[in-house]
Write a protein that binds this DNA or RNA. Structure first.
Lengths: 125, 125
DNA sequence: AGACGTTACATGCACGTGCATCAAATGCAC
DNA sequence: GTGCATTTGATGCACGTGCATGTAACGTCT
């Protein structure tokens, strides 16, 4: 690999990193300040509601979210503690848990959604 | 903003997020396993050495690194504890500290640099 | 049925991070 | 000069994360 290629590669990585961190930082701050939601909390709530399903297994909801299993488990626990989602037993498979959005969760999501989209539009639009 | 535009925006953000996390995760793991360096530690060391300067003020080195001042301070502290950089007083401004790479720091960087570039090439090449 | 590996979630722990704050040195106004 | 805001870097604290592990409920194979 030539020095020029290397420098381009590193520059590309720094751009990616800078861009991601700018958006994530801004997003987290806005969601936290205006709606009391962390970024991963919003992301989980958003995926749950946008899925169209009224209940999803933990494992299904976790798919595609860049969080470890433990981090995701705690994220849902925080959402539950805040009254935004509920967890219920799954009778087909008693190891699994269903996650459902509460009314409070739906309305909080509706509010936060605008903030989320606005920040994204500002950075990526 | 139309629903289509929104979905595109969210999709773009998820792509960015996914891509960044994949690279960062892989990079951190490889650097940690093979060279005992965290990602932010490598990044700081890399910027210090690639700067061409043999010493930089903390504040200068921190520029462009997506870390809070406190996180950066601790990152350099870890590098110092590992013997990879040294900190020395700056006589022009006695608040400031100079950071310099040690020989151990330079050789560790030389080793880790290949790993770093290889991971970047694999993901972004 | 019994044994064993696998899957789904939760939890103890160590660690890196950001925020707020602190101490010290500097610059600036007067 | 004195006073005060600003800058530089360190630190206490709370918190989110990943890793390893634990627990319980599957599935499979004999």
């Amino acid at each position: 690999m030539s020095g020029t290629e290397e420098r381009e590669l590193v520059a590309k990585w720094r751009d990616l990193s800078t861009c991601y961190n700018n958006v994530a930082c801004d997003l987290d701050r806005e969601l936290q300040d205006q709606h009391g939601l962390g970024l991963s909390e919003f992301e989980a709530l958003d995926r749950l509601i946008e899925s169209g399903q009224d209940k999803l297994r933990m494992h299904e909801l976790a798919e595609g979210m860049y969080l470890s299993q433990s981090a995701f488990s705690r994220t849902v626990a925080r959402l539950e503690r805040a009254g935004l989602v509920g967890r219920s037993m799954c009778m087909d498979d008693r190891r699994a848990l269903f996650v459902t959005a509460t009314d409070a969760g739906r309305s909080r999501h509706a509010e936060a959604r605008d903030t989320h989209r606005k920040v994204l539009a500002h950075h990526l639009g």
